[in-house]
Design a protein around this nucleic acid. Structure first.
Ligand SMILES: [Zn+2]
Ligand SMILES: [Zn+2]
Ligand SMILES: [Zn+2]
Ligand SMILES: [Zn+2]
Lengths: 138, 138
DNA sequence: GCGGATGACGTGATGTTATCACATAACTGA
DNA sequence: TCAGTTATGTGATAACATCACGTCATCCGC
């Protein structure tokens, strides 16, 4: 159990990290990890749930996909401090970049307070074209 | 064709407006509008696509659901200026509130510029409990 | 060691969300 | 009228996610 993670979580995390900077859907993971013994969606979703809970991956709502946390490194394991960063997402190539901006975090805090909602989670995604795709023809 | 909208778009928009401040999924709309003659998901999704395009409704990514724009009024029709506001979303009761905050818009602009992405769309959702649900027992 | 509690996993079925493909009808402007 | 476009009807299918139930292993108090 690499990193002290259960086998399936380790498999999924390794796969997501091997695609660092991109996002994969649950079924893409299933297809890639079928040979490694993961045979049903449930298996994948359970692993994803565990990894989300301990902050090692993030869900990208606008893609229904998942990406390894750019700040969770080998040694962190279970104790990694979870965060909810903003993301820039490329519709063309699936590139995903975490955007950690203190000013954004601050203003989101203010907006949340004013909203009268007890905010438990944030979804902040800037969707468009990454530099490469914006420059490319077509 | 109310508001100059095609029949199905008008049906969907009326239904969403009748649930102002909440979000409905495509299949909830289908169930409610079946009696009015909308019989397949495709019919609903086509209407939603048209309404999204002219800014009369918004999609809530964290709910896979849709809500009438709080600022689109009777007279606006096709020409309504589209915007991509932030939302506060209640997980418990489905309440949705548009949050229009100039400071947030400004800082998002800065973050987008810095990201190196050509941002085409934004998903900004604060997910939690609305005031009523936060106060309620259970 | 036993017995229960917990956590991880396997797996088939099912539920939910979204799109494809193709045919038909309606509207628009020569 | 006739072509081009927009809107619609409809069955099938794809993509995303969860339920339900059973198994096995580990841990812990007894
Ligand atoms: Zn991260
Ligand atoms: Zn790209
Ligand atoms: Zn609006
Ligand atoms: Zn509520």
């Amino acid at each position: 159990m690499r990193d002290g993670l259960p086998r399936n979580q380790a498999l999924v995390l390794d796969m997501l990290r091997s695609d660092q900077g991109r996002a994969l859907t649950a079924y893409e993971l299933l297809a890639r990890l079928g040979p490694a013994g993961m045979r049903g969606p449930q298996t994948i979703y359970r692993a994803l749930e565990g990894l989300l809970k301990c902050g090692l991956i993030h869900r990208i709502e606008s893609l229904n996909a998942f990406t390894a946390c750019a700040h969770a490194h080998e040694g962190h394991g279970y104790g990694h401090h979870t965060h909810r960063p903003a993301f820039a997402v490329c519709r063309n190539c699936g590139a995903v970049r975490e955007l950690d901006d203190p000013a954004l975090a601050a203003v989101l805090g203010v907006v949340a307070d004013r909203s009268g909602f007890a905010v438990q989670d944030r979804v902040i995604e800037l969707v468009g074209a990454c530099g490469a795709c914006a420059a490319a023809p077509g």
